[in-house]
Amino acid sequence: MTERQVQISLGAGAILASLFLLLWAIPQWVSSPSNVQKLILSPLFWPYALAGFTGLTGLGLLFGGLGSDDDGEPVNEPSDNPAAAWMRLAGMAAIMALTMFLMPRLGMVLTSMLVFVASAFLVRTRHPVTAVVCAVLIPLILYAFFAHVAGVAIPQGNVLRLP
C-alpha cells in the first residue's frame, strides 16, 4: 500500500465506522434513562460526539489522501514471501483462538506449553530443543510465581493438576 492508499483507506474506514456508530451501534447498544431532559447530560451524548468527530476526521483523511500525489512507494517493507507471511499470521490467529478454547479445559500451564511450542515452530526456530525445554520450564516458573507468590488462582484444567 502506498501512503495515499493508506490515507484513503483510513478515511473511508473512519467514515464507515462513524456511520455505523451513529445509525446503528449507539441507538442499539447505549441506553439512556427516559427522564434525562438535556442531551448534553445523557449517556448518549459522549458516544455521539465521539462518533461525529471520528466521521469528521475520516473526511479530513479522505480528502487529504485524494488531494495528495501518489509516489508509488510502499509504506511497509515488503515481505520476502508474502503468501508464507500471511499463512504464518493466519497460524498465529489460530493459536490465539485455540488458546481461548483450551485454557478452561486443559488449564493455563498445559495450554501455555502448547502455545509456546506451536509459536516457536511457527516462526521457524533454529533451536527446537531449547524451544521445547523453554516451553516446559517457562510456564511452570510463571505458574510458581503467580500461584504461590502473587496468590493468583491459575486455571488448572482436568488433565494436569499442579500443587
Binding site: 501455555s112 510456564p139 505458574y143
Partner: peptide, 29 residues
C-alpha cells in the same frame, strides 16, 4: 538470545500477566 525463543516466551508471559489482573480469561481474549 534467540528472538524466535524470546517471542513465544513473551506471548506466554502476556497470557499469564493479563489473566492475573482479574483472574479472568475474558481479559486474555
Amino acid at each position: 538470545v534467540p528472538k524466535r525463543i524470546l517471542i513465544p516466551g513473551v506471548l506466554v508471559l502476556c497470557v499469564y500477566g493479563v489473566f492475573a489482573v482479574n483472574n479472568n480469561i475474558f481479559d486474555v481474549g
